[in-house]
Structure formats: C-alpha cells, structure tokens
C-alpha cells in the first residue's frame, strides 16, 4: 500500500487509561493500538462511553491526572513520548505538534476575548512573531477557513459568531501552528446538516492542502464514509476492528461492526423492513467482562467469547478484527447450530 511509505506521525501501542472514582477503577480504554500516517484520515467510531474521546484526549494528555491514569501502554508522537512527557513539555507540543477541534464550539472559545486575539495567543505561544505579524497570520487562517470579512470578524467576540462560524474559528486556531496531527472530536455533531456539509468540505480541503493527519472521532457512519481513509471501530474500551473504509463498510468481519451498519436505515430502505437493533446496552467499564466486551449483545456468541478475550485476527491486508469467529479452528455456522444469523 502507498500509505506504508508515508511517515508514521502517531503511534499508539497497547494504551490503557483508567479513571479512579469513588465507585472503583473505570477502565475506559483497555488496550488500544493504532498508527497514523502523514496526510491520512483515521476515523474512530463507536458509541458514547466506548473510550474514543478518552483515547484522543490521552494523545494530547488533556485528561487531568489524577483521576486519570495510564497503567500501561505507549504513545509516540513523532519522536516524543507522550506518556512520559511532563506538563511543561506537553505545553510545547499541544497546538504545535497536535491540536484538537472539539465537539461544542460554543464552550471551547473564550467568551471574554475577541476571536482574533485568541488565535494570536496560540500563534505567539509557539512561533516567534510580533503581535502585528501574528495578527496577520490569524487573519490569513480565518480567510483560509472561509470566514467572510475576516479582518472585521477577528475583532468580534465568539457570541457574535454563529455555530458553524465558531467551528471554523476553532479549526483556524487548531491549524494556526501547522500541527502534524489534528484531532477532530465529533466536529459536526452540534451542527446542522447543511453546516455539517460545509465543515466536512473544509476539512477535506485542509487534508489536501496541508498533509496534516486527521483523527476523526464520530458516531456518524455517514460522515466516516465520506471522509475517512481508514476506520477503527471501538467498543467497550477496545478497538474491535480496523481497516480501510471499504473494508469496514463492505468486507466487515466483526459482529459489532455488522450490527452497527445494519441498524442504520439506508436512504432506499424498505419501510416494511424492521431496523436491525442491537439488544441490550454496552457493558459497565467499572467491571468489564472477562471475555469479549460485545459477548452479551452478540447474536453469534460462543462459550469462549464469555471466557477469554479474542486476539486480533488478520482478515485482509491492513484489516484486522478481534473476534473468536475468525479463529481458524472456529466451527462453521452450521456446526454451531445457527439458523438464521442476521
């Protein structure tokens, strides 16, 4: 694959993140491994509470520690070791090497400062520029994210911006120091569909122009289909399947991925057809199950699924899934006595 020749910008290896709460240790992320190459869009999909945001926040070390802990695992951002990095080191990395766009643009901008000033602040922290130069840079980036009348807009406060414009300003701020990795944590969830289309268009443009690697965290599979190069599906703190976007949508191997895709009504869905729903709810990560996290809701669950965690099996090139059904010794559906698996 052509991707392999590109430089790896982020390497996450067997990452565990736990939160110490009064109720006990919540194992939010339980062994996540992925790599991100230059200029690539990796989508992390999953339901709320599956650990996708915690994973991304750990890359930037935004989780307050304590209560968060990293019991084991490694995160390498270029040549920097994030797990060992001190807060001071992190401050030089955040914004410069890796930056983030948050879900809610309303609460992520400082309401007491003009938008332009906030961008200048980020630029001046990392780049040795005079105030006037930084101001010109800020306006350049605001123009780049298609904010009309950028010179005037830079002087306005966040409340004078609409939701879509605030998100654009956030993107401008995130890009202002040319980060190698851009983490977009549900960048369009709070926006309307027509505005969502505008923002996705902008992100695609940025990817073309700047070679920034993007981690796109979302639960909207439609957005994933349009944007991502590779997809990681997370469930109960683990990545259950990784592959190219075609692998995940057309050649998926994990029952959770399959159920997730089937639970969406397609545009030409037959109305008499019932939606396939996944019964039950995700497991409580205070006491994560011994076996596969999805076992309790899986229609094809076997005895081993409840007892042991499935290792990763290679499905195709660059396509791996963690499910016992993929084990070479796994009996066929007929032998297991399954009738109609749907």
């Amino acid at each position: 694959m052509a991707k392999d020749t590109k430089k790896v910008v982020l390497d996450v290896n067997d990452l565990h993140v736990s939160f110490d709460t009064y109720a006990g240790e919540v194992k939010a992320v339980r062994g996540v491994t992925f790599t991100l190459h230059e200029g690539e869009v990796l989508a992390i999909v999953g339901e709320s509470g599956c650990g996708k945001s915690v994973t991304a926040q750990t890359v930037m070390k935004l989780n307050p520690m304590p209560p968060a802990r990293i019991p084991q695992g490694e995160v390498h951002l270029g040549e920097h070791d994030i797990v060992k990095a001190s807060e001071k080191e992190m401050q030089t990395l955040r914004g410069k090497e890796v930056s983030m766009i948050f879900q809610d643009p309303m609460t992520c901008l400082n309401p007491t400062k003009p938008v332009g000033k906030q961008i200048v602040e980020a630029i001046r922290h990392h780049r040795k520029l005079s105030t006037a130069e930084a101001k010109a840079e800020a306006i350049k980036y605001l123009k780049m994210v298609n904010i009309p009348n950028a010179e005037e807009r830079a002087k306005q406060y966040p409340h004078e911006f609409s939701g879509g414009m605030r998100q654009r300003a956030m993107i401008a701020m995130a890009l202002s120091c040319n980060p190698k990795v851009l983490i977009a944590d549900e960048p369009t969830t709070a926006l309307d569909v027509t505005i969502q289309a505008q923002i996705m268009d902008l992100l695609a443009e940025i990817k073309e122009e700047t070679d920034t690697a993007i981690i796109l965290i979302t639960h909207d599979l439609g957005v994933v289909a349009g944007m991502a190069d590779r997809v990681a599906v997370m469930y109960a703190g683990k990545i259950v399947e990784t592959g190219s976007v075609e692998d995940i949508f057309y050649r998926n191997a994990h029952p959770y991925t399959q159920a997730l895709l089937k639970s969406l009504p397609s545009v030409d869905a037959d109305k008499t057809e019932r939606l396939v729903s996944i019964a039950g709810t995700p497991p409580d990560l205070l006491n994560p199950p011994h076996g596969c996290g999805f076992a309790a809701r899986c229609k094809r669950c076997m005895k081993i699924c409840q007892e042991e965690q499935p290792p990763e099996f290679t499905v195709g090139e660059g396509h791996v899934a963690s499910c016992w059904l993929l084990h070479p010794d796994c009996p066929s559906p007929e032998e297991r006595g399954e009738k109609d698996v749907d």
């Binding site: 939701g163 569909v193 969502q196 268009d201 439609g222 289909a225 349009g226 976007v245 949508f249 545009v267």
Partner: peptide
C-alpha cells in the same frame, strides 16, 4: 435539495459519487 444532498450516506462508494450542493452562509 440542498438539505437532502447534505446528508452523509453511510456508504463510501455512493458518498464518493454524490454531488453535494453546499449552500453558503448560515440560517
């Protein structure tokens, strides 16, 4: 038309072929 074309389809091939009408500005 714009609203319907803006809806992302959970299918990479269809998504690649689709022409999206992007309306500028906000409500």
């Amino acid at each position: 038309k714009a609203l319907l074309s803006a809806v992302p389809i959970p299918d990479p091939n269809e998504e690649a072929q689709k022409k999206r009408i992007i309306i500028s500005g906000d409500v």
